[in-house]
Design a protein around this nucleic acid. Structure first.
Lengths: 136, 136
DNA sequence: ACGGTTGCCGTTATGGTATAACGTGTTGCA
DNA sequence: TGCAACACGTTATACCATAACGGCAACCGT
């Protein structure tokens, strides 16, 4: 059984549930938190979550935040270009924003090229305080 | 007992041992790997390593690589300005290089400012293949 | 129809990463 | 002297992630 969502591939039942849990959340969730939230849907083991997450990340529907060991739903899942390059993460309210900046991407590529480094994947996570929390 | 190393603060015995282990290594080490390498120096528990690492990171002598859950000794521990802003990490040989690029730092600051985000710490890790491994 | 392959799923067990909580000993200083 | 700060040692526990097994369904070429 599959559910159509992003035009390219259909999501399986578990993938749909995990993506749903992340979409409803107001911030990043750890795999184990997702597991807990899906227990009443029949989830019993971490692997069920991790397998779904692997696929969702592969599809670009979900991002992994390395500095948090957690996952967020992509903010623009409708559009096919998941070009996010960086994240801001508020340490007070956990809100995550995605940043897309071609000039930043270009600069990183330049820096890599300069030292003959073949860039596969870049992780850019900015930790700090979001505007809302800074004001409050 | 303390050992002078970086001019500002002296390192304790455990900090010295952990920093030594990282300095001798040819790549990043996990906390548990460090623990194993220091067992014959009397280390018995993870916390001994983590506590030393916390301090060393605070001093700027050691960097944590979020995408690897591992640690590296800073490449220029003598100089007091540990201005590293990004890392390249070779997925084949594990070699880590530090990148310092003011324009990159400036751009990130700009992007953060633009959305009212107060930047505390940025994590930039570039994964890929280093020149040596690409040639081979 | 058959067999083979692939992909998803469920389960158990295990490995790897990190910290809580408690108590000790030392130092420095009011 | 008393106390605050700090490093340390130890035990236990929590949290993050994957290995390895087997089952089931869909697909594909013969």
């Amino acid at each position: 059984m599959t559910v159509s969502l992003h035009g390219q591939t259909d999501l399986t039942k578990n993938q749909t549930l995990v993506f749903g849990a992340l979409s409803e959340a107001d911030g990043p969730l750890s795999a184990y938190t997702i597991l807990d939230r899906l227990r009443d849907k029949g989830f019993r083991a971490p692997l069920q979550v991790y397998r779904a997450l692997d696929k969702l990340v592969e599809f670009g529907l979900v991002h992994r935040l390395e500095s948090l060991n957690a996952f967020v739903a992509c903010r623009h899942p409708q559009c096919d270009s998941h070009e996010t390059i960086a994240f801001t993460i508020c340490d007070r309210c956990n809100q995550v924003e995605e940043i897309t900046d071609p000039s930043l991407a270009k600069r990183l590529k330049q820096l890599a090229d300069r030292s003959g480094f073949i860039l596969q994947k870049s992780t850019i996570e900015l930790r700090g305080t979001c505007q809302g929390c800074a004001v409050a």
